[in-house]
Amino acid sequence: MRMQRMPRIAALIIAGAVMVLPMALFAAGGAEQGSFPTRAINYVIPFDAGGQSDITAQYQREGLERELGVDVVIRHQAGAGGALAWSALARGRADGYTIAGNNIPHIVIQPLVRDNAGYRTEDLRPVYLFQTTPIGLAVAANSPFNTLAELIDHARANPGRVTVSGSGTHSGHHLAILQLQYLSGTEFTYVPASGAAPSVTNFLGGHTQAILANSDDLVQHRESMKILAIGTEARFHALPEVPTFMEQGYDFTAGIDRGVTVPANTPEDIVRRLERAFDAVTRDPAFVSQMEVMGFEMQYLGADAFAEYIARKQREISTVLRELGEL
């Protein structure tokens, strides 16, 4: 029955041709009052279509529409490690009709490492944190290394000789390798690619010896790799046989947290309305099982807890970056 959407686009185009326009003109202007929301909400993904943030949002859309009673439109505004979308959001109208995906650590790192990222982390109000993608470290299936300890020992004896593929500079993967180097006193060569897919390609082709990858990529390609460690606090449900970094004596977690955010001065009741909607959608058992199959870990942080979490991450990350001389 969802198939009727296609004829609907066709109908819309025809309707446009037949000129129903003046009406649309008036409709767009009116109806601002009343309880939020009264019209479609734009859900901006600061990364490319087809990526993990996008897929998660596509899953949420139906539930959000049910909860909020209006259309939710997913748009993509990729660029500058997310900063393009976040700076646009920070400058935009604080009416709750434009919300954006919120990826940690990216949203925290961008303003730290750049003089002018176009927004400050404080310009944005976190609404809800729904999911974490743990980051894991893996080597090829035919690699001589079987444990993290073996890899670290080798790297310690041969500083800079071990190449690790990852996605982006000043990204979650980059931060993870910096923390691992710092805590283990080793030196790896981090080879950043322009995204998760090219990073996986470099690794699967044998061009790098190890890879830092998101859990969903680890799950997808697990037959062709040995996963040595994962950046969760406890064992990760989708890969229960993989030990954590913490278990193996490196006290850090690594992951990409995904949530949703609005401009800082958005009215309180609107923030709460969105928070409630996202909470309901995130707790939907069908959504949870879809996310877990794909290799994500669920989170249920509301606006206040999320704000605290971001503040903590901000402190942590700036400390790490400063100590490692990246700032």
């Binding site: 279509a49 087809g50 897929i55 899953y59 897919a197 996986v200 699967l204 794909m294």
Partner: peptide, 17 residues
């Protein structure tokens, strides 16, 4: 599971969905 071009990357997303 590796897209050869950007449009293929979006197709991958659709497949995963």
């Amino acid at each position: 599971g590796i897209p050869g071009a950007p449009p293929a990357a979006v197709l991958l997303g659709a497949l995963l969905l």
